[in-house]
Simulated scan of single mutants.
Amino acid sequence: MKINSKTVLSSLGLLLLLGGCSDINQGNDKGKETQAASSEDAMISVQDYTGQGYALPYGKETDKIAEANRNQIEKAAIKLFKENYKTDVTVHNVVGAQGGATVFVESKGEPHFYTHAVVPIDEKEKKVKADEIWADEFQVENAIKGGLYHMIFHEEFQQLDTYFESLTEEGQVTGKTKEALQNVGGQGFMTPYYFISMASKEMAIKPVYDLYMKNPDESVENLRNVFEDSLFVPDSLFINIQLFMAHENEKPNKELFDQIVKDLEEMTDIPKGSYSVVLNNHFIDKQSASGMGDDSLDLPTDIIKE
């Protein structure tokens, strides 16, 4: 399969360790993940995957140190997001990597999102530097903005969710488990079927974010009222759809894929934005949390909803 410029970095682990920078996994890198070569025993049914086996480069020893200091790391992460982003979070997973560990968190309540922090670890001293924990500002702001976008356009997203749920009920497709999103997600607002991301140049949501940061208890109505519709640029806000075949013995079905694309193109009441669509087989790579493979189907050009 041809992997184009929209493909998300093959090592989400490396991205998470570095915390990301500027628009590295937004904009031109949206909606799809390159799957590194892996043996068959590394693959698991997407319906059974909860993050088990997920690993970051050179993280074997730091993973052990992080686990031994889990309480300390959790407290540091909760403090970081509360003080810097006025957000209460739950820590779901800590994964060791070279020089540190990635801390996967989920916001409590709304705006709802998943993101991550990085805590440095001195491997030689077997010491966690909890007071030096950090999170990439762009990545966290992006996650919060995605959650806010979902909040203020909840009815439109409900139409999208209902459509994917109907496909699941019909036994045609499935998505990632909630546990997988919690333990190895970290990509902003996420559902089993899609995640939201945006480029830094997307300015329509900025007043919403600014108002939320001033008052996290602001009403949804007031947040919606400050959204700058006139500044909205559809190809700067991405709704990245990632679906899996419902049954283990099925390869991605081109007829089904084309029908999903057609349905999305014809929908008039779903959120505005740029839609990428990927249909994978039924399996996901345990180590990378990626379902993208040689037989995956994707769109050469996004669906634009203005």
Rank of each mutant, 00 (worst) to 15 (best):
K30D: 00
L15F: 10
D29F: 13
Q159F: 05
K214M: 09
K32Q: 11
N71F: 05
S290D: 02
T268W: 00
D298I: 15
M267D: 05
E40T: 14
N84Y: 01
L223Y: 06
D23G: 06
Q182W: 07
Q287Y: 12
D229H: 14
L18G: 14
K145W: 01
S274D: 03
L243Y: 02
E306R: 15
N93L: 12
N240K: 11
V226Y: 02
S219H: 08
L299H: 07
L181N: 12
V208T: 04
S200D: 12
G146Y: 11
S22C: 11
H247P: 01
Q139G: 13
T102P: 07
L279F: 04
T102Q: 06
K6M: 10
F189P: 05
E106D: 07
S288F: 05
G51K: 11
V277M: 04
V95S: 09
E110V: 15
L160T: 10
T62F: 03
A101G: 03
P271G: 02
F227L: 03
D258M: 12
P111I: 02
V103M: 03
A42R: 15
E179C: 03
V91I: 10
K305T: 11
G171P: 02
F189L: 07
A101K: 06
Q287A: 14
V226N: 02
K176A: 12
Y54D: 02
N69K: 10
E137T: 15
M245T: 04
M190R: 11
K64I: 14
R70A: 07
K129S: 03
G53A: 02
V233R: 12
I65Q: 03
T191D: 08
Y49L: 08
N281C: 08
D269I: 11
A246C: 09
G293K: 01
I196V: 10
V105G: 00
G13N: 02
K176S: 13
S39W: 13
Q98V: 12
N69S: 08
M198C: 06
T115G: 08
E156S: 13
P120W: 10
